[in-house]
Amino acid sequence: MIYLQLFWEFFKTGLFSVGGGLATLPFLYEMQARTGWFTVADLSNMIAVSESTPGPMGINMATFTGFTVAGIPGGIVAVAGEICPAFLIIIAIYRLLDRFKTNRYVQYALYGLRAASAALILVAGLRVAEAALLNVPAWTASGAFTDLFRPLAIALAVTVFLLYRRLGKHPLWYILASGLIGVLLKL
């Protein structure tokens, strides 16, 4: 039965992909080759759509694949399979942490983990900035250093940064406004 199979395939994907949505990609390629449920072209289309719609990428990809294979129930079943392992593991970790949170060494480890966490989120932000604010392919093609920068995108990012720090306001408003500005300026 296709729903059970979908659930099982995405359960495995959710269980073995460590570290976020993009980590699920190799598993989806492997699933494509083994089951033939969708084509390689479907996969690249899926990555493009997942990147260009709201929602965590891993969930978008599971929805897309499940829906392509078996319609709306397929999408739901694939997402359920994908989130199941993380759901159970995080509850177990929460209970462990809650029991041992007063332990000195747990506190010491968390002291190091928090610093690492800030660094890794910054790295993820820098990777987005590289794609959004710089144009590395144009620079390597022309060799002209000025081709490296996307001035409009940089101006927009700096404006958002300053306004957000000064005014606060909900991030949603900045995202909506920036999307609109992107369309108007043809960023």
Partner: peptide
Amino acid sequence: HALAGIRACVCALVFS
């Protein structure tokens, strides 16, 4: 185009 704007915005928000 909208996404190009949103990505620039998202990295500014993430830095902040």
